[in-house]
Simulated assay, not measured.
Amino acid sequence: MFDITTSGELLAEFMAEVRDQRFDTTGRFHGPFASGAPAIFASQAARMGARVAYAGRVGDDGFGDLIVARLRDDGIDVGAVQRDLERPTGTAFVSYQADGSRRFIFNLAHSAAGQQTLDEDQLERLAACRYCHVMGSSLSSPAAIAIVRRLVARVRDNGGQISFDPNVRDELIERPGVREALLELVAGCDIFLPSDADLEWLAAAGEDAERTAQRLLSEQRMSLLVLKRAAAGCRAYTASEVIEVPGLSVEEVDPTGAGDCFGGALIAALAAGCELHQALRLANAAGAHAVTVLGPMEGCSDLATLEQRLAAVGETQ
C-alpha cells in the first residue's frame, strides 16, 4: 500500500533570468526544470520518506526523460507515468514581474500531459493508498477531471482519505466543467489546503476568511482545513480547535512550488504519524525552504533539512 498517490500534469519548466522579461522579445531562460504542481508535492512527500505513487504522461523525449528520472530519483513510484510516442512533453515558460506576480505560457492541452489515461489495473494499484492528493491545476480538461474523479472514488471506496489544494486560477475556472469539479472536491475532501485567494473565491457575500473557513468546516465533509498564508505561516481549523503556526523568515529566491511543498510535507508528516501541530511546523519549514532555491522542484527537502530549519529558529522537535 502507498502512503500517498497523486495524478496530474508533468512538464518541463523554463524560468526567465531577469524580472519583467517579455515573451514577445528575445531573452534568457533557465531550464529545463522538472515541474508540475502535483509533481512538486509528490517530490516533497517522497523526500520525507512517504511511499508515493504518481500517475501522469510525458513525451518520449529528453524532457520526459528528465522528469521521469527526477521522480524516480526522489523515490516516487512511476509505474503509472506513461510515455507518449506522438506528442511532446508539456512545457511552461515563466516570467517574474517586478511586483512579484508571474506570467506563464503553458503547452499542456496539446502535449503528452493532455492525453493522460488511466486503465483499470493502474487505477486499482494507485487506489491502494492512505491519502490521495488532488491539485486544482490537474482539473484542466474534461478527460483530466474524469481521471481524478475515478481515482478519488476508488480511494474513498478503499477507506483512504482525500486531500485537496484548489489553487484556483481565473484562466482555469473558465474551462468547461472546472468550476463544478473544484466545488465537488471542496465538498468531498477530508483535508482542505486553501490559500487566502482560494477562500476569497469560496466566500459568501460579506464573509471574511475566518467565517468562510468555519462555514466550510461545519457544512462540508472535511475534518481539517489548513489555510496557507505564505510567509505568515498557516492556520489550521478542526472541529475542536484553531492552531496558528507562524512562518519562518528566509531570503526569497523563487516562490514557485512553495505551496506544493507545504502540502507535500504536511500530508507526509500526517502519514508518518506526526501530531497535527508538529506536521504544521514541518509544512511551514518546507514552504520556507522551497523559496530559497531557484527551480520549482529544486527546493524540495528531506526531513533532516526541515528539522534543522526548525531548530535554527528555536522550534521544539
Rank of each mutant, 00 (worst) to 15 (best):
D260T: 11
L217F: 05
S223Y: 08
S240G: 03
D260L: 12
H277R: 15
E241C: 03
E275C: 13
E252C: 12
A239K: 08
A231E: 15
A232Q: 15
A258H: 07
S223I: 00
A283K: 00
F262H: 09
C234F: 05
E210N: 12
P255A: 12
R221T: 06
L225H: 06
V245N: 00
A209Y: 04
R211L: 15
L217W: 01
R221S: 11
L216F: 09
I243Y: 04
A265S: 15
L248H: 13
G233V: 02
L266R: 05
A285F: 06
A268H: 04
A265D: 05
A271K: 01
G259D: 11
R235D: 00
L280R: 06
A213F: 03
G233I: 03
R235N: 00
G263S: 14
L224V: 14
H277T: 14
I243A: 01
D208P: 15
E244R: 12
Q220E: 15
H277S: 12
I243C: 05
Q278N: 12
Q278M: 13
V226Q: 06
R211P: 01
C234H: 02
A285E: 08
L266V: 08
A231G: 05
L227T: 05
L270M: 13
Q278H: 11
I243H: 04
D254F: 09
A285V: 06
I243Q: 07
P255D: 12
L270N: 03
E241D: 13
R281A: 03
T256A: 10
R221K: 15
T256L: 15
A269E: 13
L248G: 02
L225G: 05
V253K: 12
E241M: 04
A271I: 06
L224F: 08
A232W: 03
C274T: 09
K228R: 12
I267G: 07
V226R: 07
K228Y: 01
T238A: 02
Q220T: 15
G257S: 13
R211Y: 00
G273R: 02
A265R: 00
E241Q: 13
G257P: 14
Q220D: 13
L266Y: 04
K228H: 02
I267R: 06
L217K: 06
V250Q: 12
N284M: 09
L216D: 08
E252F: 03
L217C: 04
L276G: 11
G247L: 11
E252D: 08
G233R: 00
A268W: 06
H277V: 13
L270V: 11
S249V: 14
S218T: 13
E210M: 14
E219M: 09
A236G: 02
A236C: 02
A269P: 08
L280K: 00
